[in-house]
Design a binder for these strands. Structure first.
Lengths: 174, 174
DNA sequence: TATTGTTATACTCTATAACTATA
DNA sequence: TATAGTTATAGAGTATAACAATA
């Protein structure tokens, strides 16, 4: 059993005043989410949804989504990458990467080249068009992030980045 | 055009040394993700994946998922809530809420009660079993978060929470 | 007309098992 | 036998259009 000294007693105690929601009241700000607001994961999900939606909008002109964008960037920065390495780097399963690469290959943004020394594997490489689209997309995403994070100063951004890395590492605990 | 003074020149300049990935090298840490690491969204996605996976594991014994858990907590803390209000609070579309509530109702954790003053609407309320399960789940999730964030001090957690809120608000920009 | 909840549908992301061809 | 990539499939989350009942 963990210590859990910060444990809230949940609904029983939180609901001192049950809030009496009016039938015609559509004001979402009135909904009591005090219990959920105690969880960092709740805030992370909501913030990430915003980032994700904005990223999707930003990538739309390039006909890229988050996954196709990530794959294209990693292939461009790591020519010769194997699919299994890319899947591991992207934290997705190998089968799910296949369709992503199919799409990028069909659009002639990347190439799958047979590796002579291991004929099971493919070496992934960007085409010229792929590199050019990648550059444009990265610039657009950079601008989109700066716009979205304009109210976060450099210290805050660094704090968030450090925290996210710690959380990610924390996955390895028992 | 945004100022974008932090813009990286992307692959063209990042790839000074193309990294020469060896055919037998499966070490993911060797993959150059310098371009992506510049984006807070990249770190947020990876960290959120960890949180999400851990939450799912935590909720498994209660046969809850993130969405059913969130709905149950909000209904428990806001008895009388309408479905449209809940959907708005959860930031999901009304049709997608229906199946979530169907599941909670089938398990007799919540009730859909007709509102006399507006016979189109349902007032959502937890059953006794729903309240009890909610309490247990909230306690479990609290413990899970404390475990996952044990390397983040209170200042760091507050900084992240503040940043997430700012990002969420940032969605309202033009 | 507008709104509440609903159905139907489609797309994306995710996860697993099983296959092929190589090693 | 093990690995790289693939196929097939299923579960979840998300988004939109259209409908019935009600306002």
């Amino acid at each position: 059993m963990p210590s859990s000294k910060n444990v809230l007693q949940s609904s029983g105690d939180v609901m001192k005043k049950p809030m009496e929601i009016q039938p015609t009241n559509n004001d979402v700000t009135r909904v009591n989410d005090a219990t959920l607001r105690q969880f960092l994961g709740y805030h992370m999900k909501r913030a990430f949804n915003v980032v994700q939606a904005d990223l999707l909008r930003t990538l739309k002109p390039f006909e890229l989504r988050m996954l196709t964008y990530t794959a294209l960037v990693l292939i461009t920065d790591n020519p010769g990458l194997r699919q299994s390495q890319l899947a591991a780097a992207m934290d997705i399963e190998r089968p799910n990467l296949v369709v992503i690469l199919d799409e990028l290959e069909r659009r002639e943004l990347i190439l799958r080249e047979r590796v002579p020394t291991d004929r099971r594997a493919y070496a992934l490489a960007p085409t010229l068009a792929g590199r050019q689209l990648c550059d444009k997309a990265v610039a657009a995403v950079t601008a989109h992030e700066n716009r979205l994070l304009e109210h976060l100063d450099q210290d805050a951004r660094a704090a968030v980045e450090a925290a996210m890395k710690l959380i990610e590492k924390g996955a390895g605990r028992g």
